[in-house]
Design a protein around this nucleic acid. Sequence first.
DNA 1: GTCAAGGTAGACCGATCTGTCTACCGGAAG
DNA 2: CTTCCGGTAGACAGATCGGTCTACCTTGAC
Lengths: 203, 203
Amino acid sequence: MAAVHPRHLLPSARERIDHIAYELFSRHGVRSVGVDVVVARSGVAKKTLYSHYPSKEKLALAFLQRREELWTRTWLQEGVKRRARRPADRLLAIFDVFDSWFRRSDFEGCAFIKVLLEHDDPAHPIRRSTEGHIRTVRDFVRELAEEARLPDPEGFARQWQIVMIGSIIAAYAGDRDAARRAKKLGILLLADARIRSRGRAQI
Amino acid sequence: MAAVHPRHLLPSARERIDHIAYELFSRHGVRSVGVDVVVARSGVAKKTLYSHYPSKEKLALAFLQRREELWTRTWLQEGVKRRARRPADRLLAIFDVFDSWFRRSDFEGCAFIKVLLEHDDPAHPIRRSTEGHIRTVRDFVRELAEEARLPDPEGFARQWQIVMIGSIIAAYAGDRDAARRAKKLGILLLADARIRSRGRAQI
DNA sequence: GTCAAGGTAGACCGATCTGTCTACCGGAAG
DNA sequence: CTTCCGGTAGACAGATCGGTCTACCTTGAC
């Protein structure tokens, strides 16, 4: 059936590869998903995969790029901006977005962290890439902190990200309410930063 | 040479297996360490390993037990109790212990989290075991919270553990100062819990 | 009609994985 | 002296890994 349709009306082989690789790598990480599974599930010839990507490593790097586009930018950043307007409210809205994420029955955890922990060589390209994507998320937080005129936005963002990451792992380990707990931490952190900011402004 | 010594004066095969498995699984996780490597590094015959442990899975479960004994109990809990006496100070001392951990050149990250993220099936024995060991750490925090007479010790412990885990991952991703940042968060959390406690006591 | 591009199906390679098995060895206890 | 236990050395099986390759097919452009 499918083969009868004109090629341009169907998802191309590359699109199917990217889509299935995203599904599988997001859920299971990179290491435990073999190329054979990607090939079988995307209904593509093995040779086709290797004509688009020279190695599994490059496919994984492309996946991480896609994850940043779909998860970080489209889902997290846009979701946060849709939920609140003021920068400080947007910071807290991160945990509202997380809350709906953690309660999904198909909650899969954070692919960046998963892939980061899979690679213990700090020089490995995949590990370096995940660290870059984690930095991208932190940059988003730092920008919100700057817009909220908080002191030491970089330090604030690093603390905020500790809470974000901790809550994701806690949720993965079974704590459905991890986002609520994290939000409370965020409120404390935000209040403290504002006190410091006001204190400094008075000097 | 070694074979010439009486058997009882040398580390037994089992001890060598346990020791090397601990080294390798702690650093690299379970999945990416093959039994052949454990066999080779411990200088033991493959058959000997399988006479002590019926499968790699059982070896991994024994490793997690050992990790709880060496890391959680001996290193973390005793380290904390050595550094401070009052329960609230001991809570904060967790991050002092973490700080020296994160700054070690051979910092290996948290094996429990690593192994947890390696297994996405929630029913898998290894995953269930890691969740148990994570709960053990949280119980330790909860007991300190109870001793400090903080309200809602379980909720407090879960928030505290979010910070602990987040800082470990942040350190693993390259933030050497993650423990200092986490300790600041802990100070805020502790102060807030005390305010709530005092507020409730006045009612 | 021809031809190149891109795709399919699947055999195959060498390496590595967990786990089993045979054959042998050395020391301690009877 | 013999016997048994715990161990060594390493071949082997069957599965799976990433990656290559041949042979064939379909579509669109010319």
